[in-house]
């Protein structure tokens, strides 16, 4: 198992940056997310987390710094958070920090809805 690193881009779409670090357990997702095939893009991220939580089993700090994501992405974020929640339920140590623009009340409400939906504690960090 290796680090998962994807450089964000603004080409035909908005590709987010991904930096999942095997050694530190710090997993960061940042930038903007509007993709041609959202499910295909996020599948390796979900697979990586599932693999980490079943084999490495160390603490995870999951950090989201997305300034924009479309609704297809929002479903994939739910899948990522559900993997983390399952890990936590099995005794894994999980911290989720979600950074968002303090004026973006729509995103703030969406993060609250993710908390209700997944049962996962998410630290809201306005900037």
């Amino acid at each position: 198992m290796e680090d998962l690193i994807i450089e964000g881009a603004h080409d035909n779409f908005f590709t987010p940056s991904v930096n999942f670090n095997l050694k530190t357990g710090i997993c960061e997702l940042s930038g903007e997310s509007f993709l041609e095939d959202t499910v295909e893009f996020y599948k390796p991220l979900i697979d990586w987390l599932e693999s980490y939580t079943t084999t490495v089993k160390k603490p995870i700090a999951f950090i989201i710094k997305l300034t924009y994501f479309n609704t297809s992405t929002s479903r994939c974020i739910l899948d990522l958070l559900n993997v983390l929640k399952d890990y936590e339920d099995e005794g894994g140590e999980v911290v989720v920090n979600w950074h968002y623009d303090e004026n973006d009340t729509d995103m703030e409400e969406d993060i609250e809805d993710y908390m209700i939906d997944t049962g996962l504690e998410i630290n809201l960090i306005p900037f």
């Binding site: 499910v39 609704t71 929002s74 479903r75 739910l78 409400e109 809805d113 939906d117």
Partner: peptide, 28 residues
């Protein structure tokens, strides 16, 4: 918001859609 959560939990549709584009439009 409750309807959004219900719909987002459904399996993604073709094209990976999350069934909530119109709901999010109304919320936004």
């Amino acid at each position: 918001r409750k309807y959004k959560k219900e719909q987002r939990n459904l399996l993604p549709g073709s094209n990976g859609n999350a069934h909530i584009g119109l709901i999010m439009t109304a919320l936004t």
